[in-house]
Structures are given as C-alpha cells and as structure tokens.
Design a protein around this nucleic acid. Structure first.
Lengths: 140, 140
DNA sequence: TTACTTGCAAACGTTTTGCACGATT
DNA sequence: AATCGTGCAAAACGTTTGCAAGTAA
C-alpha cells in the first residue's frame, strides 16, 4: 500500500523530466503522506527538506504528477485543491471526517448501477467518481 | 423535476431573509438552469433580468442557498465552483462531458458496497458522494 | 554545452470584507 | 423607523506567467 518514491522519480525521468532537488522534495513529501495535502501544505512539508524550494515549483510539480497519474485530487465540500498519491487501477477514496486520513479501496463493480442509470437518463456513461466519508478506526 | 422558484423564495423568507430584487434575480437564473453555473455565470444570467446586480450579491446569495440546501456544488476535475439546483432526498448527479447538461438520478442502494468497504477499511461510513460523467442523449 | 528547471516578482482571476447608501419589513 | 441587504471599492487569496540565473544531463 505504501508508495515508492523512486518509482515516481523514474516515472518522471522516463517522461523526460530532470531529477532536481525541488522535485525530489515535493515527491517525498507527497509520497509519505497519508492525508491529502494542499499545495501550500506540500510546500511547507517539502521545504523542511529543501529550504530553498519555491511555491511555484510545487505547483509545477503537482501539475506534472497529476498529468502522469501519480497523484489525484481529493474533493471536499468546499473545494478540490488537495492532492493525494493515486492508487493503481480503479480505486476509490474514503476519508476520515475527523483526522483527514485517506484510504483507497478497490473499485467495486458498479456496472449494474450504471446500466440502470444509463437506461433511466439516456446517458452513455464514461466515467464515475465516488468518495466516501466517515470515521476511521482510530477516530471512532 | 423542475424547480419552483417561489418555493426557494419562501424558504429564504422563512429563514429570515428579505426578498430583494437581487435575490430574486439570482434565484430565477439558477432555478431555470439545466447546467451547472459558476458565480460569474450566475452573475451574467441574473444581470440580464436585473442590470444593477453586483457580483458580491451573487456570492452572498449562493452562500445562503447552499446553506439552505437549495443548491449544490458540482465537482469537475479541475474545480468545484459551479452550482446547480439541489434535488430532494438522496440523489446523485450525472453530467454530460460535452454540453454540460446535468441530470439527477435516484440514489441507488449502495448499502452492500458500504458494508464491504467498512469491513475492509475499519471505517464507519457516514456520507458518500457519487458523480457520473458521460454523454447525454442529445450529444451521443 | 545545451536545454530544462528554478525562484523571484508581478500579473491575474476569484472570493471576501468594510462601508455608506438604499430597500424591505 | 429599524434593520437588513446592496453595490462599490479595495483587500485578500490562490494560482499562473515572464524572466534571468542556475543546474542536470
């Protein structure tokens, strides 16, 4: 379940990116986190490893990581600016409303639901997005 | 399925709000829309009815309408700033990726899924959020 | 050596706040 | 008449862009 930062770094490299201190710091901060982090939170976390880091590099690295499917956005009621390491394959998120801990779970087969909805609405369904909220084992 | 703007206005009134031209214009613009609208889009739509309207009133009215559960935020990959009339009871959204049309569908029973996930993750599930994307009947 | 990447500063778009005037009740 | 709500202007915020200097390959 844990993220291997070296995998991220080599994915970046394969994509033609150079491995810089700024990128390493951002990747490490994100890959270690069990909570969704906003750009500014990533900035502070990464800055403790690499104090010269600028916020702009955080934005640019996040953009690249999202493009490569290594991080995903987490949606909250008020905004969608937080990022989390993305899982492999089709996974969904469950978030603790109290401590913010995020856990991925395997994408269940929702095909039956989709078929019903497609029939009901006339839509051809392409994508779906499911997030659960609750209390984690430690918080309940 | 259509929204009755008078219901919205009386809900506002019951909540202690005054019925002003600004609020009427915002409510009408939103209640008529089949697409999710950003604050600025609401502003332009409502301004055609009430040209003196200020953008600030749109923000303040949206905030109140969201608080009263009359509108809901729509989440897209890049942000969550668009609003749509909220449905009654437990409903989910399906959005057309091409024209943006939004349709609500009845919340299916996802209890079985939740139980599996709860068991798997140790979470106590409180809320869930499901949005589908695809092509509507007209666009496909 | 070359091209990519960086941090800084400034620009930008969105959302919020302070305030005096105006409107609703 | 008493509040509540408004529009304006300005501030605050998060994010993006232009650029010269620095760094990885």
């Amino acid at each position: 379940m844990s993220i291997n930062k070296d995998d991220w770094l080599s994915t970046l490299q394969v994509d033609g990116c150079r491995l810089t201190s700024a990128r390493r710091a951002v990747v490490e901060a994100l890959a270690e986190s069990t909570h969704a982090l906003t750009p500014v939170e990533v900035f502070y976390a990464a800055r403790s490893r690499y104090p010269v880091l600028g916020l702009v590099s955080v934005y640019r690295t996040l953009e690249k990581l999202e493009e490569l499917g290594l991080v995903q956005r987490v949606h909250h009621s008020k905004g969608c600016q937080a990022f989390l390491p993305a899982g492999q394959g089709h996974q969904h998120l469950i978030l603790c409303s109290r401590c913010g801990k995020a856990v991925l779970f395997e994408g269940e087969d929702l095909a039956a639901l989709f078929q019903t909805v497609a029939h009901q609405t006339g839509f051809e369904i392409k994508e779906h997005w499911l997030q659960l909220y609750g209390l984690c084992a430690d918080c309940k």
